[in-house]
Design a protein around this nucleic acid. Structure first.
Lengths: 203, 203
DNA sequence: GTCTATATTAGGATAGAC
DNA sequence: GTCTATCCTAATATAGAC
């Protein structure tokens, strides 16, 4: 029996409130993990943000690992603007729009960058998530570049798979530099420059 | 009075041995921090690697912060092949050679990637180091691209400063993906492809 | 210079009252 | 569902013997 099914019978009952509380906690945890990472952030930190006791959080998330996984899911569903596979309007608009959106949401880039690198360690609870994510991103953008190639918009010598991995890498790396020194780096502008070098100009 | 000055009077005395021990510890700490990050790695972990007690390490490095700073210095002076400002032989050879060297040294890329992202937090002991490092890298590579521009090797529309930041970003991002899924990403090949897109071919 | 013993703090997690 | 009290573990760091 899912939460949704119960919700149909009791729309404004205790379950709705519980789901709200859950989301409040996850939002707070996102802040904390963005600032100090998964290892550096504590239940107590999250509890301080939401104004609850540390042990009360354990009622919603029995382990810290559960909390992190909820944060990662929250990032994908609530925080990020991603519209699934980046193919509809073309990879260029999609990427540029998302990159501009990202810099406007405080903590969003930080959360992603911090957790991704922490997850390099195979025993990190976020490892599988990020391995899959990078794989999906590369596959999706490779598809996008192939679509452009079929329109003759790819410059000669450009490999769609290499370009896909490079686009993801460039984006991540730019965001890291931006976090270290905002004002020194313009993420969307640099991504636009990359597309200019890889694609033929639209007439 | 510096260690070197003392070393001249007592070349194989206790100071030489102490320096050796110090380097052994720093090397071990590099491993530990590479695997679990600065926050996730402990004095005990390092002590286990070198085969000493945890408290003995404190004789060489009074605080964990001191140990990290020693690791960062060690990385620059011993581990990495960097030949200062990348101008002599040209930015292309320099970057490609270094990127190939990096993937051959176990833990080197991991150490760098993990610590860089952890250092986003301004109160992280490595923060200042990485802010300076990114700034220096951008400045150095911008210089390298400008040198190429003066030879007419830069494609029209390519901004040396944007290209410099992008090169650093691309490199870092590729290394991150490589750590997550080695075999899926070829770092030197992708960097070479980037140069191909930004520079005019050599005759 | 290296050790044991220990202080101190903090983190994740459990038990159980209300 | 929220709390207090508590356990257990681990981490940084200190004191002091040898």
């Amino acid at each position: 029996m899912t939460t949704e099914e119960l919700g149909q019978r009791r729309p404004r009952g205790p379950y709705a409130k519980s789901a709200e509380r859950r989301e409040t906690i996850v939002a707070a945890a996102s802040q904390v993990f963005a600032s100090h990472g998964y290892r550096g952030g504590s239940f107590q930190d999250v509890a301080n943000v939401v104004g609850m006791s540390q042990t009360s959080l354990l009622h919603y998330f029995p382990t810290k690992r559960d909390l992190l996984l909820a944060v990662l899911e929250y990032r994908d569903t609530k925080l990020v603007n991603e519209s699934g596979v980046p193919l509809d309007e073309g990879i260029v608009c999609e990427v540029l729009a998302q990159s501009e959106y990202n810099v406007g949401v405080p903590g969003l880039i930080e959360l992603y960058t911090v957790l991704a690198s922490e997850s390099i360690s195979p025993d990190h609870p976020g490892h599988a998530y990020f391995v899959a994510r990078f794989g999906n991103l590369r596959a999706g953008y490779a598809e996008g570049f192939r679509a452009l190639a079929s329109e003759g918009r790819l410059r000669p010598g450009v490999d769609p798979d290499v370009a896909a991995a490079s686009l993801v890498a460039l984006w991540d790396g730019l965001q890291l530099q931006w976090l270290m020194a905002p004002g020194e780096v313009d993420v969307p502008a640099a991504l636009r420059a990359y597309f200019d070098q890889v694609l033929t100009p639209t007439p």
